[in-house]
């Protein structure tokens, strides 16, 4: 039976890009903010672009926080979606804000050491393991990044990237996965990663 794959409608603007990328892989997807639909899915995508504060406001308004925290199936956060998965973020006018707390960790401003921000473009990623999400994706593979905030390299890091500082290009904690780059816009490498996630 075909898997049920749901993209959480976070109200952010890259939802159609993620949907189209999965459709290119021949995967049926549904975009939903319905808690029952999300809870029943086999795989869940949490997309996001823009600011953490705005996205958390939208997620809270849709009353999705308890549903997302209760998920036990594989969940993949993309870009801002990944940043929303940790405990807190500095990306707010009001100082630190609470995120979804699915993965321990904190989002801070990327310490690019004089390099230009946003960190925008194709950069190389080094996975910490060569199976699972990064199956068939060797160290040095290019992915497309656009961000100014990041999660540092720590014990939940599944892949690293260097831009002024070493930061988490991908995270994993139990069933929760996140990628800082945009697999939906990362050519063949991105398609490989999305395929790996769908096959988990």
């Amino acid at each position: 039976m075909a898997q049920k794959i749901v993209i959480v409608n976070t109200g952010c603007a890259n939802i159609s890009s993620v949907k189209f990328a999965l459709q290119r892989l021949g995967v049926e997807v549904e975009v939903s903010s319905d808690t029952a639909t999300i809870a029943r899915a086999d795989k869940v995508f949490l997309p996001g672009v823009g600011s953490a504060a705005a996205a958390m406001t939208s997620i809270r308004a849709k009353d999705l926080i308890p549903t997302l925290q209760a998920l036990t199936q594989p969940v993949l956060g993309v870009c801002l979606g990944m940043q929303l998965m940790v405990e807190s973020s500095d990306e707010s006018n009001q100082g630190k804000i609470d995120c979804l707390n699915l993965i321990p960790g904190h989002v801070g401003r990327l310490q690019a050491g004089g390099l230009r921000l946003p960190h925008m473009g194709w950069n190389t990623v080094t996975p910490t393991q060569d199976e699972g999400l990064f199956n068939g994706i060797p160290a040095g593979t290019y992915f497309y990044f656009v961000h100014s905030f990041a999660v540092p390299d720590y014990d939940k890091t599944l892949a690293t990237c260097d831009y002024g500082q070493r930061f988490s290009a991908a995270l994993q904690h139990n069933n929760f996965y996140g990628v800082q780059f945009h697999p939906e816009r990362s050519g063949e490498a991105g398609a490989q990663l999305l395929t790996n996630f769908v096959k988990l």
Binding site: A13, S16, F20, A21, R24, E184, R185, G190
Partner: peptide, 29 residues
Amino acid sequence: AEVIDIPFCVAGGIRSVTDAGRILEMGAD
């Protein structure tokens, strides 16, 4: 957006936040 797997930007005729939102929702990066 349906067929392209690299980032793309759209320019021209975007005069408001609403115009921009429409383009981004259609899948432009």
